[in-house]
């Protein structure tokens, strides 16, 4: 087994364990911390796949921004130590979860993956940038639409929380 495989299995085990911990641990703050760990493991998986830019952005956005906001929201809630008490929705939730897992696994196993169609550029960052901002076949318009949508969200947030004059 080469080093990359070892890294993959370690990260995958970390991801599964922390994802299970997110659902099973009653203490919400600790569950949030495990979610951050899961994000971290996903970033590690991206990096082992050669997607270094994606891995760094995953840490920056999910660990540094979304994780922090999540923990902040948890700290603002009451009775964190009592955790999330069980309710009657656990049965339908687990059935739905099992169905979703089955559907995803089935489609993953039954898809013919066209791997090695083109040689992966390593490092991938420059190639990624070139393909996104390519003038003919690039994705400049979707990118700009995304930027506009984010701007609208920011303005909406200011309008929502701003002082009533």
């Amino acid at each position: 087994m080469d080093l990359q495989a070892v890294a993959f299995y370690v990260l995958a085990a970390m991801l599964v364990v922390s994802a299970l911990a997110v659902v099973l641990i009653p203490n919400v703050f600790r569950a949030g911390l495990f979610l951050v760990l899961a994000f971290f493991a996903v970033a590690g998986l991206f990096i082992t796949l050669g997607a270094d830019f994606l891995g760094a952005v995953q840490i920056l956005v999910y660990v540094g921004a979304i994780g922090v906001l999540l923990l902040l929201a948890i700290m603002l809630t009451r009775d964190v130590h009592h955790g999330s008490p069980g309710n009657r929705l656990w049965l339908p939730a687990s059935v739905l979860g099992a169905l979703l897992l089955g559907a995803v696994s089935w489609s993953l196993l039954n898809t013919t993956w066209a791997d090695k169609a083109a040689e992966m550029p390593v490092p991938a960052t420059a190639a990624l940038g070139a393909s996104v901002f390519d003038l003919q076949n690039g994705f400049i318009l979707p990118l700009e639409i995304g930027a506009l949508a984010l701007l609208a969200v920011v303005i909406g947030a200011i309008v929502l929380v701003g002082e009533k004059k």
Binding site: F29, V36, A56, I59, L60, V63, V68, P123
Partner: peptide
């Protein structure tokens, strides 16, 4: 490292979580 400075920005954003953990 071809994403050097991005790596620095990403890694240094982790320590905020540590500050939260210390406080909590």
């Amino acid at each position: 490292l071809n994403i050097g400075i991005l790596y620095i920005v990403a890694v240094s954003s982790i320590s905020t979580i540590g500050v939260f953990m210390a406080a909590w």
